[in-house]
Nucleic acid binder design. Sequence first.
RNA 1: CGGGCUGUGGCUCAGCUUGGUAGAGCGCCUGGUUCGGGACCAGGAGGCCGUGGGUUCAAAUCCCACCAGCCCGACCA
Length: 508
Amino acid sequence: MSTPAAQKTAISPRREEDFPEWYQQVVRAAELAEPSDVRGCMVIRPWGYGIWENMQRQLDTMFRATGHRNAYFPLFIPLSYFAKEAEHVEGFAKECAVVTHTRLEVDAEGKMKPASALTEPLVIRPTSETIIGASYAKWVQSYRDLPVLINQWANVVRWEMRPRLFLRTTEFLWQEGHTVHETEAQARAEAMLILEIYERFTREHLAVPVFTGAKSESERFPGAVQTLTIEAMVQDRKAIQAGTSHFLGQNFSRASGIQFQNREGKQEFGWTTSWGMTTRMVGTMVMAHGDDDGVILPPRVAPTQIVILPITPKEDTRARVLEACDALALQLRGKHFADSAIEVEVDRRDLGGGVKNWEWIKKGVPIRVEIGPRDLEKNSVEVSRRDQAIKSKESMSIQEFAAGAPEILMSIQQNLYDRAKKFQEANTRVIESKKEFYDFFTARNANKPEIHGGFALAHWNGSHEVEEQIKNDLKVTIRVIPLGDGEPGHCIFTGAPSRQRVVWAKSY
RNA sequence: CGGGCUGUGGCUCAGCUUGGUAGAGCGCCUGGUUCGGGACCAGGAGGCCGUGGGUUCAAAUCCCACCAGCCCGACCA
């Protein structure tokens, strides 16, 4: 154990002291985002937005590779469109922002007031099934027009009561895919394909392992027949839904009139899907990998993968050090990691070396490289990896580092995944009895309710009453029902026969 | 949207009970000493004390209303 002084962490409180507060502090310290003056909305700062842009680009590539194309639909949805699908409206009604007026006028007291009421109020999209459906109804006439495979990158608004940076904000950014298919089987396959893309993306790019499967009826998307989801475990052992893919059956095509003449010449409603992944992923990643010194970014989504820190203690060596830094940066930028050129930054700001270094630690940049006068003489660099102890650095020759940088990035990427996977496995348990289940989810310390078991794999017989009971007692819900053939058994709550185990957890 | 708490320079807060028109630490700026590490010294900028009204000779301080934020519930990507 080191001395108290050496234990000082960049972020306080530490994760184990107060996880929610730690999270807020990390997001701010790393300059990812901050709350804005607009209730429930956040400002995403360049470092945070850079991460999102990387996610966006990478996911987009995956969508394109599977035949999807981007388009853009209106932010405003006429109330009448929105109200077409009963379950859907009911599900979203409470969180809709509604535009009722246009024009501002100055009133007698000199204040600006909305002047002219709209004949039909406009709902600001909480999701776009209905407005996109209206277009699809026009575009789809024949089975030859199918499938329609469209995605849009957009902002949506859901008037949430308890916002938290990235995890739940009133306005957030996402992608929403909306597809129409000729047959049920094709639509189901589409929903599954997207689930697989989401799973692969979080695993390979964000280094976050997930459980995949279907939602129980009570957790399903309003209006969906089946909701597929990926659920990640973060460091307080809670689950977070990180992406969803819905098989919508013919519910929305019926509501929007998406009809086509099938191969037999008969009119038929299209089979639709919708799927989305949001800026919540940024928060998920922070909570999955971060430590008490800040964010730790998987190299694949880091806006800057390598930062070069010039050490310039003496004026006379300064120019030569900077020159060496630029030369190394140039060399590194010519190399590739995961299909794109390595992003390198030389931090030549006139700040104390320690201050700079800590800033990058908090931001989670994967590799920090120091070059100082002594390195110039030895033709070497000092390399620090963010996935290793803060103080550790390794000296190597410039050539060796430049040549090996892609491998180091790869190694960090892999290490983060392995760590997260190990954590997930260590905190996922097969549970065989009701008592064991309740014990598992009971906080060990009443003051820190977030410290509890983790994920439980237990048999359940499909009864909604049981789900309700567990939710009321423990705030634990079924996160996913794994797909495929599970081992049969008996529900640990009712004793009734059960087809398979399901994943239970507390969630965000 | 219900219950509790809180609004004082960029941030964290003290002052309020016992009214007399503002303080600290951090951050920021300048100069210097440092600097392979979030250093130190000196000087400096920055606040109509959430908003509106009331009581009073006098309000950050007392009273009322409103607004906003936090925590706990219900809801959610």
